[in-house]
Design a protein around this nucleic acid. Structure first.
Lengths: 154, 154
DNA sequence: CTAATGTGGTTTTAGTTTGAAACCATGATT
DNA sequence: AATCATGGTTTCAAACTAAAACCACATTAG
């Protein structure tokens, strides 16, 4: 049923997460969830996607432990969808996406929504990749290493 | 032709980037590009996706300024696909995705590929979101603010 | 020079997925 | 009891995906 990015039996550390998230819509649902939305109808209104799709995506997110259904918070008889801890772990990814968007998809003077520190109301800092010793790293400064099957003695 | 996440005329700072990337495959192509792959055949072998799909994805990435075609590096008559600066800007996103994957998709002892600092060979640091003043921020410590249309005096 | 092979695609075609709209079940409201 | 709101599921046409066949050009072998 789920569309899998197949090919290799053991999907790599990038493909596995992508497979769990499911698709773009799911990411927008998750963003809305970080924004405080919880109800089916809220997500639908915010995103404007078909109800069957929303239904399927929420079900998939719950199945993958990214969101969870809870009975109700306002006493209503319906359920709500909330991020699990696993789902909350996606926040840096959303920030990275947003910052990339700010860099390349808006004119310098074009107004756009901004993620700010709740207490100071200043924009958050740029995400930056650093080495253990604190040096800032660019993509070229990194390598992927694969673990050797047995004890790795290099 | 491109599948658009429609609904709102002005897509938000998260949807716009998603739309440009295109789909999951594109993200895997980009990851492979960071890994040094450049040729059509290399991507196809690495990802195992159909050639027509790869062709369409590469075309889309080039159209969105994320990758670019260059004549050839080894003197051959074929072209190669390389990341533009815009494309390179996606590195933090891939790192975020990978780190999330490490956190939630592998058993603690399960071996997996790791992103390491090229000079020390130590794993890179975890991405962390910080305020301007350096305080570390969780998702709950942030807010989205929308710019007021005219001069914003709050 | 000619044939064989490798690379980088496009076209074709079937199967799957998507999404809009209609429908439906349950709970709340009048 | 009737009506409305919420939260879905079902139906069905259109769009997309993907495997395979095909093709053009470049390179290598003979």
């Amino acid at each position: 049923m789920a569309k899998r990015i197949s090919h290799r039996d053991s999907m790599c550390g990038v493909a596995r997460p992508l497979d769990a998230i499911g698709d773009w819509w799911s990411l927008l649902i998750i963003r809305d969830a970080f924004d405080g939305l919880r109800r089916f109808g809220e997500f639908q209104k915010s995103l404007g996607l078909a109800k069957n799709i929303l239904s399927a995506r929420l079900r998939n997110l719950v199945a993958h432990g990214i969101m969870d259904t809870v009975p109700a918070s306002d006493g209503g008889a319906y359920q709500e969808y909330v991020l699990t801890r696993k789902g909350q772990g996606l926040f840096p990814l959303l920030v990275a996406l947003r910052q990339w968007g700010e860099d390349f998809f808006f004119e310098p003077d074009e107004p756009h929504v901004t993620l700010v520190d709740r207490v100071t109301h200043l924009p958050v800092r740029r995400l930056e990749l650093r080495a253990q010793d604190g040096r800032m790293l660019m993509a070229e400064d990194t390598v992927i290493v694969v673990p050797s099957p047995a004890g790795e003695y290099e």
